[in-house]
């Protein structure tokens, strides 16, 4: 199962974490891999915490609910507190340092603190910190080919918001460079 990425994206509702997860799921779809995407749902979606589980694998996926992630994208402090203990040794954590107070305490994982939200705002990409984080995760894990990731953005952005494709691609580029 070495080729399996089990990713949890977690933060506040409205940060686009479900969308970020969708981009990665589309990347798996384009590469014809096994994919699952599972959001948290219910009242907690209305402005509270939100998270979603995305698995990319070469074998049929069992539980889409991830309890032992190999990667995390964390966009607020409560999410870091909630999921830090769950990640497997050797896992990768991408953290938006603009929105968290503390660094992870785990020493057996690779943590990347990036100021995704402030960097996105400075670059005129307000609201796209989620994609900046996806870019950073890709630069560390290369879970698909580079062009696949761009294609995934194009697929994930709904047709009525097609104008936002370029901004998303910029955000991806920004994250990869951080």
């Amino acid at each position: 199962m070495s080729n399996e990425m089990r990713l949890i994206l977690a933060g506040f509702g409205g940060q686009g974490l479900l969308f970020g997860g969708k981009v990665i799921a589309y990347a798996g779809l384009i590469d014809d891999r096994e994919v699952s995407w599972l959001p948290s749902y219910g009242p907690e979606m209305r402005g509270g915490t939100a998270n979603c589980s995305v698995t990319l694998s070469d074998e049929p996926i069992g539980s889409p609910l991830i309890t032992d992630p190999t990667a995390l994208i964390i966009m607020n402090q409560p999410s870091l507190d909630k999921f830090e203990d769950a990640i497997v040794p050797g896992g990768v954590i991408v953290i938006d340092s603009a929105l968290t107070n503390n660094a992870p305490t785990r020493t057996d994982v690779e943590s990347f603190m990036i100021p995704a939200t402030s960097a996105a705002e400075e670059a005129g990409l307000a609201g796209l910190a989620n994609i900046v984080c996806v870019g950073k995760l890709w630069s560390e894990l290369a879970f698909c080919k580079r062009e696949t990731l761009d294609a995934a953005i194009r697929k994930a952005v709904p047709a009525r918001k097609a104008a936002l494709v370029d901004k998303n691609l910029e955000a991806l580029e920004l994250g990869i460079g951080l």
């Binding site: 969708k22 799921a25 798996g28 779809l29 994919v35 699952s36 995407w37 599972l38 959001p39 749902y41 996926i61 889409p64 609910l65």
Partner: peptide, 10 residues
């Protein structure tokens, strides 16, 4: 169930 209803797969 809620899990199957909410999840996305190809």
């Amino acid at each position: 169930d809620g899990m199957l209803g909410q999840m996305m797969e190809p």
